[in-house]
Design a binder for these strands. Structure first.
Lengths: 340, 340
DNA sequence: GTTAGCAGTCAAGGGCTTCGAGTGCTAACA
DNA sequence: TGTTAGCACTCGAAGCCCTTGACTGCTAAC
């Protein structure tokens, strides 16, 4: 059943007010603040049909109304009026990303911080592992006598993670040859391709150090198989919201937020090309407490995932604010990365 | 005034019991569990003198006794009987550090995790920045056309943090020359020496790219000036302790734990060569809430700081357990690092 | 110095009452 | 048919009182 315009308006008022105040919304307050042309009794009867339709709930008989999960969903998809960020906020975002080292990890941290600061919710950033990303360069640099640092360059990233042990007596020249081989065989391919390749013929000419070669391949495979890095920001911000004055709620949210696995699970967007993804309430996600929402955005440049960012907080979340912040951060992020 | 043996024993019983149960300790429970030879009235009179001396407090008239900050201090320095870790626990520590990449950051994380798991408190690890550490090697590796990765090797660490922009048209040969210069001028010196050096003559021969040279020097100086990395583990563990069933306590502890500056401040050992450092209660440290304790250990190899590790939790902390865990982790850590 | 006995204190918890915000229902009106 | 005023009803929140029980401090005797 399609809701009448007035019902939609009233529902929107209830949700907006509730998001702001965290107090059940009464018929009287609606007629006072928004719908001054009708009486509270009229609103009351509208509210009671909205309740029958499953959009509103009463904590108890003599209380105002509180939105249901259904209502939040409708709100996000239809009712919500997106917020424009203030000049100050836009500047703040801009500033946070200028003069930043171009490292993905740094960007991850900055983004998490900005999002948490502007939304006042706990934010999560997850660096992406996109197996379709093209490897532009793989090189080993000798850092100690028998250790080399493996550096992988892709369009979006510069990885410098694995330290690889070199066999005794490997000369700089041999290392150079090996690097040349790596360049020839691996550069230009995606991680996926590397994973499915065999390399048996490729390395024939290089018997002596094939062991090291396979260590490199192994490191590439391990990288793409591993879950991305997770950054958390503003854990303490949850305390500002009244739902987390109850210790049990804090506990259950904390248990999610401190578990990397659960977070990765939550952040995995189930949408295809949907950029912004909203998970409300228990809604089938076992990992989040039932009164929790997660809003995430996955950013792409040139079709390659650069990361997933989001906030986690009470169902009564300021969705319009969060969505605006995520969209704006996304724009800047993509403009930075695409410059590389 | 020196306490009688019996008073010391009784005080120890009170503290041990209180650490375990979090409930004020009554005279009766002491005679039942520990001092079966005397009556509760006797213990009562001892307790009341211990209270006069400032070692014990009563939450209210008809409650048992609770240790004061003074009592905890005495406990830690004299009364406490150090705990031997179980075989299982020792194995757990051992295992956590085997098959680990030799990266300082990884070790930092592992250590924080182990400490938190074994003590069941929130743990903090702070990677040290020791300006007396000798730089063994500084090298730039070209990763993109106009970007080089700066890798710094010291006895204890492998740093690969800064990406340095190269001027257009810098050839590999020039980069090689620059690396040679870096090797000549910087290797073998401490960070401190680098900071106070001028380099004006050194680079005369290298006018063309002195700009890049100074970027490298700048990166070294920045590194040593920056505060170390902070790793936090087991934030959620604080909820297991009854003092943190009160939301306000959680808030105030969280506000410390989520602020890097405050943590760095707290972790800075004020001891000279004291390895284990205990800060109890408000005790002059503005940053910690008054009912908090911080126990830290600073580990050295070859006289160089490798990091500071510790736990933060309620004043009613299981000091003997924490100290044992920190000591054992320290041993393993040093044996690993000294192998490099 | 130690002990038994007893009176005194105080937090915790259960039950009771009051207060007020907000609703549902109904009858009347446009 | 939609809107409104009025009134009775409901129920959580907060305050209050009382009971209970766990301790202690004190005192007098050993």
């Amino acid at each position: 059943m399609e809701l009448s315009e007035r019902k939609k308006k009233i529902l929107q008022y209830v949700i907006d007010d509730y998001i702001q105040t965290a107090v059940p919304v009464s018929s009287k307050s609606i007629t006072e603040k928004h719908l001054t042309t009708v009486s509270s009794a009229t609103v009351r009867s509208e509210l009671s049909t909205l309740e029958e339709l499953g959009y509103l709930m009463q904590p108890h008989t003599s209380a105002g109304r509180v939105p249901s999960i259904e209502a939040y969903k409708l709100y996000v998809s239809e009712l919500m009026v997106k917020e424009k960020l203030s000049e100050k906020e836009l500047e703040y975002i801009e500033e946070a990303f200028t003069n930043r080292s171009k490292d993905v990890d740094d960007i991850l941290k900055s983004a998490a911080k900005v999002i948490s600061e502007l939304t006042q919710y706990t934010s999560v950033a997850l660096s992406a592992r996109d197996s379709e990303e093209i490897i532009r360069s793989v090189k080993m640099f000798r850092v100690r006598k028998s250790e080399a640092l493996l550096v992988i360059v892709t369009d979006n990233k510069l990885l410098k993670d694995s330290v690889i042990a070199l066999p005794d007596g490997m000369t700089d020249d041999t290392l150079g040859e090996l690097n040349q081989l790596l360049e020839n065989v691996i550069s230009g391919k995606t991680f996926n391709e590397i994973c499915s390749m065999k390399f048996s013929e490729t390395v024939e000419e290089f018997q002596a150090y094939k062991e090291v070669f396979f260590k490199v391949v192994e490191a590439l495979r391990e990288y793409i198989a591993s879950e991305g890095e997770v950054v958390l920001e503003g854990e303490e911000k949850m305390f500002a919201h009244p739902e987390y004055s109850d210790i049990d709620n804090v506990k259950s949210l904390m248990s999610v937020v401190t578990s990397k696995d659960k977070l990765v699970d939550l952040m995995s967007a189930d949408g295809k090309d949907i950029m912004i993804n909203i998970k409300i309430g228990s809604d089938g996600y076992d990992d989040i407490p039932s009164d929790c929402s997660v809003v995430t955005a996955t950013y792409l440049t040139n079709g390659v995932k650069i990361g997933t960012y989001g906030v986690i907080g009470p169902t009564r979340m300021d969705y319009k604010k969060v969505v605006s912040v995520l969209e704006n951060v996304g724009k800047i992020l993509e403009s930075i990365v695409s410059k590389w």
